[in-house]
Amino acid sequence: MKVLILSEYLHPQTSGITVRIEYYVKYLRKFGHHVTVYGPTDCPTADKKLYSIPFYFINKDMRLCLPSFQLYKDIIFQKYDIVHIVGPNILLCTILLFLLCKLMGITVCASFHTNSLAFFKEYCPNRVLFKLTEWWGIYCQYYPPIWLKIPILHPENFTDLKVCCNNFDQGHILSTGIDTDLFKYSPNFIKNKLVYIGRIAPEKNLFRLIDLFKLVEDKFTLDIIGFGPTDNALKVYAKEKQVKNIQFIGRIDYQDLYKYYQSAQAFLCTSLNESYGFTLLESMSCGTPVIYPKCDVFQKLYKPYFPQLEYDVNNDKQFLDALKYIQESDVHLRESCRTYACRYSWETSTKDLLSIYEKLLTNHSKKQP
C-alpha cells in the first residue's frame, strides 16, 4: 500500500498525537508499506518538509505548517492509494487538499485526536474569544470533512464531533497502543516517591496537583517532568506555597521517560479533560500505579479494573485514600498495572489502522464507475 501521511505532530514534539503518528509510521513501514510523511521542517520523521512556524500562543513546541507546491504535485502525480491528513490543522487549508484528492479519485481520510474545544477553553477565558475559536473549530475543521463525506478517524474517547455536530456518532475508531518494550516493567521503586509526567499547561490542572502534594510533602517527594506555557507560573505557585520535596525536572527525551516512571511509587494525574492520557498507560506499563481523577475517559478505561485509585480532584480525602491504598498494596498491584497495559500494543493498533485503510479503499473502489 502506498500511503501519504500529512501531520504537524511529529518528533521532537511530545504530544500524545505525536506518539501515535510516530508509531503508526514505524509499524506501517515495518509491515512493508510505502509511507511518505509530510511534516514540519525540524521533524526527522518527515520525508518531505513543509515550512512551519511555532505556535507561540499555546505551545511553542507545536509547529504550524503551510501547504507547498510539492505537496500538491505529489498528490497529483505520485499515485498514492490513500492520503491520511492528521488534524487539527490551522494553516494547512485542508479543505483544498480534500477537494484535490476527491478530484484525483484518491482515497482520503482525516483523523482528529484531541478534544480541541475543551483544550482551547482553558486558553480562552474571554467568552467572545472562545466563541470565535469554537466557530473556527466547528466550521473550518470539523464540518468540511463531513460535508465532503471524507472518512473520519478518531480515538474512542474523542468527543468534539459529538458535541459540535448533532451528536456525531459515525467514523472509524482508532485503537490505542503502548510500547511495552520501551516502558518496561520494574518491581523496584523508591518508596514514597511520586511523579507527574506531561505538559505543563492549563488543561492539566497542575496548580491543584501542587495543592494535593502539599498535603503529603513531609512524607513524599514529587518529580514534575515536562514543560509548557504555565511552567514558570507553576514554579512561582509552588514557591509561594513553600512546598517542600518537589523537583521541576523539565524536558526529558521520550526514550528516557521509563526511568522516571519505574522509580516512582505512584503517578499523579489531575487532568479533567483527556482524549486518552498516554502517560497513564505508560506509567502502568512500567508497573507504576496511577492516581487518576474522575472524568469520563478515565472512568471508562480504569475504574472497572482499579476503582480504588480514582478520586474526585477536589476531594482531599479521596486523594489521600488512593495514595494510602497504593502504600499498603504489595507487588501484585504493580503486576496488575503491567498486565493491564500489555493489553495494548502499537503493532495491533497499526494493524487496526490498516484494516480501516483497506475498508476505505474497498468502499472507494465500489463507488468508482
Results as ranks from 00 to 15, higher is better:
N245Q: 11
C342K: 14
L50I: 10
D218T: 11
M1R: 09
R251F: 11
F130C: 07
V83H: 03
N59Y: 10
R251D: 03
V86I: 15
Q262P: 09
L320P: 09
K193Y: 04
D160A: 04
L309I: 10
Y9Q: 07
N245Y: 08
I173V: 14
R208F: 02
F267R: 00
E22M: 10
S349K: 04
E347W: 03
W136P: 00
N126E: 06
V128F: 14
E358C: 03
D47T: 05
L234E: 09
L96E: 11
F168Y: 15
P293M: 04
P144T: 00
N115D: 15
C337G: 07
D169P: 04
V25Y: 03
G137R: 00
S7I: 08
N192I: 04
C101Y: 03
T270Q: 03
P304M: 11
D330V: 05
L148C: 06
L66W: 03
F130A: 08
E310T: 04
L6A: 05
T270C: 12
D316W: 00
N157Y: 15
M1G: 13
C337L: 10
E274P: 09
L206V: 01
I326G: 04
P229K: 12
F227Q: 12
E8D: 12
K214Y: 09
F112H: 14
T114H: 06
